[in-house]
């Protein structure tokens, strides 16, 4: 565990907590894409298949449980909670997210480190995570009116990705044989998707104006 990895995990954790806090306390999920949240739930479910069979550390197990629990409860809130679900921007959140899953699955079947069920599922989760933010970015651009918590949520998610790249660079120089093309390339693609958002986020922060994405 290095400082970049820890910073990445913490920003990831905070992003989820910010989102849950928003949903739980103000009973609103306005501006949040259910499509992206469903994809994250699938990402964690397929990645952590070995949660009870492959013990790494107490830290890892607890974090996995938090990510699984939070992603499924966010989906539950948005779909089932009688007050929260009313604030869902259903008409704006029209991204066909299921269409993202098939190419990711096919790619995972072709390009993987080892052709086993566990490994293909792990790889699938990496590819899917790389594109899972797309419905959320599309929704942000459509709604234009981005509240602070939603902006912070996406910012923290992007920061998590950036820290993970620093973590891989660090591990590459400090650990032997640490070369994982699949993880790195899908992680890099995912981080680049945030570049545009980051640009406007920092502009609004610098000029102290409300965050708004161009149409």
């Amino acid at each position: 565990m290095n400082i970049f990895r820890l910073a990445g995990d913490m920003t990831h954790l905070f992003s989820v907590l910010v989102l849950l806090l928003k949903i739980h306390t103000i009973k609103s999920c306005a501006g949040i894409s259910l499509k992206t949240q469903e994809l994250y739930a699938i990402v964690f479910a397929t990645r952590y298949l070995d949660i009870f069979t492959n013990y790494i550390s107490l830290y890892n197990t607890i974090m996995k449980l938090i990510f699984l629990g939070s992603s499924f409860s966010i989906v539950w809130y948005m779909r089932r909670h009688k007050i929260v679900r009313r604030s869902y921007d259903k008409d704006q959140d029209t991204f066909r997210h299921y269409f993202l899953m098939l190419p990711c699955l096919i790619l995972a079947l072709i390009i993987n480190e080892k052709f086993t069920f566990r490994e293909v599922m792990w790889t699938f989760s990496l590819y899917l995570e790389a594109v899972a933010i797309l419905p959320q970015l599309v929704l942000l651009q459509r709604t234009r009116n981005i509240d602070n918590l939603t902006g912070q949520y996406v910012f923290l998610l992007g920061a998590y990705r950036a820290f993970y790249i620093l973590n891989w660079i660090y591990r590459y120089f400090t650990e032997e044989h640490f070369v994982h093309w699949i993880t790195w390339i899908s992680g890099l693609v995912q981080t680049l998707l945030y570049a545009d958002f980051f640009y406007y986020y920092f502009q609004s922060w610098k000029n102290n104006v409300k965050l708004e994405l161009p149409a």
Binding site: R5, D9, H12, D50, N54, I56, S57, N60, M63, K64, F67, E113, K114, E119, W122, Y164, N167, E175, H177, F178, V179, H180, T183
Partner: peptide, 10 residues
């Protein structure tokens, strides 16, 4: 092996 290394991440 390399695989286990990458699987220690979240």
């Amino acid at each position: 092996s390399g695989q286990e290394e990458s699987h220690d991440e979240l």
